[in-house]
Simulated scan of single mutants.
Amino acid sequence: MKILFIGGTGIISTAISERLLAQGHELWLLTRGTRKGLLPGVRELTCDIRDEAGAAKLLEGQTFDAVADFIAFRPEEAERDFRLFAGKTRQYIFISSASAYQKPSVLLPLTESTPLVNPYWDYSRQKAACEELLLRHFREDGFPVTIVRPSHTYCERKMPVALHGEKGSWQVLARMLAGKPVVIHGDGSSLWTLTHSRDFALGFCGLVGNAHALGQAVQITSDESLTWNQIYGVIADALGVPLRAVHAPSSLLASAGTAWGYDFEGGLLGDKAASVLFDNTKLKRLVPGFAARTRFDQGAREAAAYLLAHPELQQRDEKFDRFCDAVCAGLEAARRTIADAAGEGVS
C-alpha cells in the first residue's frame, strides 16, 4: 500500500513507520523537514501542513491507500485535512486520545461507546470535537475516516511517569537515582494502563487498509493495568534503586503547579488521576490475534537501560526538581502543623 503520514517521527508514529516499512509498504512522511533521515526507505515530503495552499500544491496528483495525521489537534485542522484528502485516499486515520473519555468515568472498563466528556482538559475536548466533525463528514460526504484512540504510550526513549516538567520524565528518574523522594499523585492506588509503542503499532497496522474500520473509533491499549504505586516501583526496580514515594492530593498538585507555571489540571484531574481499564474487544475483532506483548516491567527495564546509555536524553530540569522539593517540604510542614494543633487541643 501507498501510505502517507503527517508527522510520523514521534513516539507512536515512529514505531508504526518501522513496522509498515518492514512489511514492504510504500511510506511517505509529510513533515517540516527538521528531523530528516530518521527512517531509511521512507519517502519525505517537506512542507508545513498548516500552509494548506502549499500542501495542496505539493500533493497535487498524489493519491494514497491510507493517510494518517498524527499532529491534528483542533477541528479546524481536521477540516483542513478533509479538504486536502477527500477523494485522494481510501482511508484517513485520525489520531485522537483516550483522555477524551468521560472523567471520571461512571462505568469501567472503558469502551469506544464511553461518552467523550472531559471538563478538565481542553486538549481532550478539542480531540473529541475533531472526532465529531470527521464522523459527520463520513456520514454526509463518505469521507473514509477511522479514529484511533491511544492511551499512555511509551517507548525506550521515554519512561512513562504521571508528573513531570517541560523537559520530560528524566528528572523523575534522576531523583530516584539520587535517593530523593518522588511525588506520586493521590495515594497512588488509582489504576493506569501503559502501552509500549511496538504493541500500539501492531494494532494500528492491522487497521491500516482495513475496510471494516471505516467509520469506526477504535482504542488501542495494553490489557495490563497497574496502580501508580506499582508503576513507580517498577521504574525504581529497573533503575536498581529503592523508591521513596511522597503522596500528594492531585488537586493540590494542580493548584500549586499553576503558581510555578505548570498546567497539571488536564494531565492529572482530566486524565491520570482517574482509574482506567480498557476493553479492547473491538480492536481484537478488527485485528484478529492482536495482543500486547510487552509487560511494563519488561518495557521499563528496556527504557532504563536505553536512557542510562544515552546521556543526550538525560535532560535535567532544575525547576521541576525544586517544585518537587517544595511539595515534599510543604506536605511535611502541613503534617507538623496538624500534629502540633492536636497537642494544643488537649485540655
Rank of each mutant, 00 (worst) to 15 (best):
S222C: 07
D223P: 08
E224P: 06
E224N: 03
S225G: 13
L226P: 02
W228F: 12
G233D: 07
G233S: 10
G233H: 01
G233W: 01
V234Y: 12
A238G: 04
A238E: 02
A238W: 13
A238Q: 06
V241T: 08
V241E: 02
V246D: 00
H247S: 09
A248L: 00
P249N: 12
P249D: 05
P249G: 06
S251E: 15
L252C: 12
L253H: 07
A254H: 03
S255Y: 02
S255R: 11
A256P: 01
A256M: 08
G257C: 06
G257P: 10
T258M: 13
A259D: 14
W260R: 07
G261F: 06
D263N: 14
F264T: 08
G266C: 00
G267R: 08
G267Q: 02
G267I: 04
L269D: 05
L269T: 01
G270N: 04
D271V: 02
D271A: 13
D271L: 04
A274R: 12
V276F: 09
V276D: 14
L277G: 02
L277N: 06
L283C: 10
K284F: 07
R285S: 12
P288T: 07
F290P: 00
F290D: 08
A291R: 15
A291T: 15
A291E: 09
A292C: 07
R293G: 14
T294K: 11
R295N: 10
